[in-house]
Design a protein around this nucleic acid. Sequence first.
DNA 1: GAGTGGTCTAGACCACCGT
DNA 2: CGGTGGTCTAGACCACTCC
Lengths: 252, 252
Amino acid sequence: MKIDIGMSPRKRPSLVEQVRESLLGDLTSGKLTPGAKLPNENDLADRFGVSRSTIREAVGGLMDAGYLARRHGSGTYVTSSPRTRHPLETTVSYTAMIRASGRKPAETVVSKVVRAPAAEERELLRLSDGDSVIDVERVRFADRRPVIYSRDRIPVALLGDSSDQALDSSLYAILARSGHPVASATAQLIPTLAGAKLSRLLMVKRGTPLLHIDQVDYDERGQPVMLSHEWHVADAFDLVVNRRTSPASEDA
Amino acid sequence: MKIDIGMSPRKRPSLVEQVRESLLGDLTSGKLTPGAKLPNENDLADRFGVSRSTIREAVGGLMDAGYLARRHGSGTYVTSSPRTRHPLETTVSYTAMIRASGRKPAETVVSKVVRAPAAEERELLRLSDGDSVIDVERVRFADRRPVIYSRDRIPVALLGDSSDQALDSSLYAILARSGHPVASATAQLIPTLAGAKLSRLLMVKRGTPLLHIDQVDYDERGQPVMLSHEWHVADAFDLVVNRRTSPASEDA
DNA sequence: GAGTGGTCTAGACCACCGT
DNA sequence: CGGTGGTCTAGACCACTCC
């Protein structure tokens, strides 16, 4: 129940990560097929030359990721349906996502300005007087079809020198290079309708259903580093959430 | 502080759970306020009379739930925004959710039938020949306003004797009593528009934006136990997803 | 009853943060 | 530097499943 998010510069992978990678390899290579039973934890510990706790943590991560399921008293088994399409609960570069779905990604920058923040932006980004934000409006395409309109705002103070390096790379990459890699985010999902502007930009009829995603991105320290507004064409992606019953469930 | 209704056989909470509950109490009671620093792990271990690993697991759970944040080399701190509105990534009873938001929950059963499964249902629920499903259509209200229309299908074979006990309790509770508590789920989110039927049931205009949630619930063994189709009125809830960067992130 | 995962301990050393 | 969380070990006992 703890996925390692460590994403900073290269460092020697922990034993847990090494074991997890190794098992994941067996899973994706087909060496371990759905329904198969894993060796028991003591055997795995011996095989990898680590302690049982290490094995348990590695296997635990693969459970969280949905690859494995433990059955108390019985064994650990390979899940029948390893993965889902696009898990919303992890942040991904849309460019990578479109490419992964076998389509050709493209994007156009509608506007890019540096300006003073609006009141809401000041609050959400915890800005001080005089701080300004860079505001980027883009439309993303998949196979020449517009699928997402987005508006991202980042405090210029965070970017240091990199504020000029345009948008050759994703904003996530730029933030990471600036020492503020996005570690988590909170997104609110709102179904809405295409109005005049969005229908033009996304080339859909007015009144077409869109999914509006209103997101705040945080770095490892919990500092807000980016505000995103996105409007998704309904059928462009399979937006999926993997849900679990809350461990600390209240009594209702 | 231990009621034990008729749920699964009573068992003593693990030390981890006890520690977690205790810390959670401090958090919700305001004893620990946002930004506050927790005692270090060794101190906590001494105070609770458990090992440091136990403390770490308890704290880890509260991190996952968003209450605490660890900073390597610095300490463990109370999150500034304890919890967000309605985290989509955990499954909740809507009745409880509506009540938690300070509104009065109600529901009407539109229909409830036992029938043979459709092809898609047979596949998703992994049914065999002759298996049938119970199909429940409901509308949920918050303060007398309809907010969700749902259609849930459960294999009758799973319910045992409880198939008759109507819907006095939530379907989650019924499944739990039948030995198949929902442990995880996969939900697909699709923005859509209210058509004739939904506009009538949810008392909105045709063409009103709705969020369609198409969900499969699984028990601890990974066996699918319920299929849900839900249509949410856009502004009824704040649907929120807490996202994190994927551990194995691609370069984009 | 044999075998499996579930929980827990006590202690060690490492990596990072701050002063 | 001292204090903190991060990783890992070796071993113990418990709880569940299945034969």
